[in-house]
Amino acid sequence: MSDYLVQFNNISKFFGKVIALKGVTMKLRKGEIMCLLGDNGAGKSTLIKTLAGVHKPDEGEIIVEGKKIIFDSPKDALDIGIATVYQDLALVSLMSVTRNFFMGREPMKGPPFFKTFDIEKANKIAAERMGQIGIDVRDPSQAVGTMSGGERQCLAISRAIYFGAKVLVLDEPTSALGVHQASVVLKYIVKAASQGLAVILITHNVHHAYPVGNSFTVLNRGKSLGTYEKKDITREKLLSMMAGGEELDKLEVELKEMNRLSAQ
């Protein structure tokens, strides 16, 4: 058996004429943070949606714990412990912290057929879990809309972990956050990985990815530019590999050339 928890083998995905992904291969281990990098439209979200059960890949296969998997719905993926925190977080801002935390998996109490949502227990767990990551939810029945972006992100992540995620997929968790809040979220991600979760961290911000990642996969226009261990690649190299990197290099050369010409 391989030591990889999740393997994407030659995944392709087409939306009509759009080739969103073409032959992408990526592997990750337990306890590892894999950063998936790439410019907007590179296909990052599409790739992880094939793992989350939102899209079925048109070519290639996904192997989880040595078994090829085919998901019919996001619920199938959740059931085997693949939790995805989407860009839009899947939080309902009008609903309370607790109701969001347990959305879809409410704790129940009472006799069969008269089971009710155990809101007291849910409140307690939600407050406790948020407390563990340093967010003191004074009133878990308050609307999520009143929380900051970082707190919401942490809520979505801690919900995924509470429900026994083995693989945690985070789609741009820091892109809408300020520096301070982003570092809070990143710290929490490292903590989650150290507890044995495999994490896929999607971002187009190398400065967020580099300090926390163990390995890096760069996507460009639906194709993988390869996966690199941290020791094998520098931040600068990653930066230039991301879409536009080479173009920016070329631009720099051209600008120098222009300056040289105008100086003459």
Partner: peptide, 25 residues
Amino acid sequence: LMKTRYGNWIFASGGDKIGANNVGV
């Protein structure tokens, strides 16, 4: 609405149907 799982699903489905679907509602 207040006390059952189905009630929570009603709020979730109306609040954000894609989000709710993604977490298994």
